[in-house]
Simulated assay, not measured.
Amino acid sequence: MIRNIVLGAASVAALTFASAASAADLPAYEPAPAVAAPVPSFSWTGPYIGIQGGYSWGDTNIGGIKPKGFVVGGYAGYNYQFDNSPVVVGIETDFNYADIDDKSGGVKAQTRWNGATRARLGYAFENFLVYGAGGIAYADRKVRVAGFGKDSKTAVGWTVGGGLEYAATDNVSVRADYRYADYGKDSFSFSGARGRADYSEHRVMAGVAYKFGW
């Protein structure tokens, strides 16, 4: 009986050793490497607010007067970029302090503020945005005639232009912008006499904006 017990124990040991040896010969299992989540590309969608400054030069029909000067102010708007598309649409408004004037022969024309509300349509190259813009322009207009006094109007016209914008970070962008504005003709009164004067301008602006998360 002891002999049978010894033989049984030996058989169990032999089977255990054989199983361990077979397991050692199997290839080791390695988990599949984790796939990194794709990094989302930059999106222009969201509201923004910025500051800007630039230079304006224009023309009138008043004796060769061509108003020119500096402009500084702020702008705010909202962009929407379509999913999986480079197309960006938006709306923007700005308001600026202006130091624009010119005079000739006792007549002076000047503008002390201006602004516009424009629709924008752009094409994005990742962090770069090329855009066109157009809409309503408005400005303060003053005309002074020596010896006859002065008169002022709030002129309303149209504007069109475009620019290039670069998103330096997810929240900060810089841009260069050109626009042309035509304010039409307004009637001015000087000591009972009346006259009509038109005004148009070209403007180049540079700005920096903060885009809020969306």
Rank of each mutant, 00 (worst) to 15 (best):
R3E: 15
N4L: 05
V6Y: 11
L7K: 14
A10M: 08
V12Q: 05
A13D: 11
A14M: 12
A14L: 13
F17N: 12
S19W: 00
A20G: 07
A23N: 04
P27W: 06
A28Q: 13
A28T: 10
A32N: 09
A34N: 11
V39M: 12
F42P: 04
I51S: 04
Q52A: 03
G53F: 03
G54Y: 01
G58P: 09
T60I: 05
N61V: 13
G64Y: 06
G69R: 08
Y75I: 03
A76N: 03
Y78F: 15
P86G: 08
P86W: 11
V87Y: 06
V88Y: 02
V88T: 06
V88S: 05
G90T: 07
I91N: 02
E92Q: 14
D94I: 01
I100E: 00
G105I: 08
A109T: 12
Q110A: 05
T111K: 08
W113N: 05
N114L: 15
G122S: 06
G122I: 00
G122D: 08
A124N: 12
A124E: 01
N127H: 15
L129E: 05
V130D: 01
G132L: 10
A133I: 02
A139E: 01
A146L: 12
S152D: 13
K153P: 01
T154S: 04
G157M: 04
G157T: 03
T159R: 00
V160S: 05
G163M: 07
Y166K: 12
A167K: 02
R179L: 14
D182T: 07
D182L: 04
S191L: 08
A197H: 06
S200I: 11
M205E: 04
A206R: 00
A209D: 08
W214P: 11
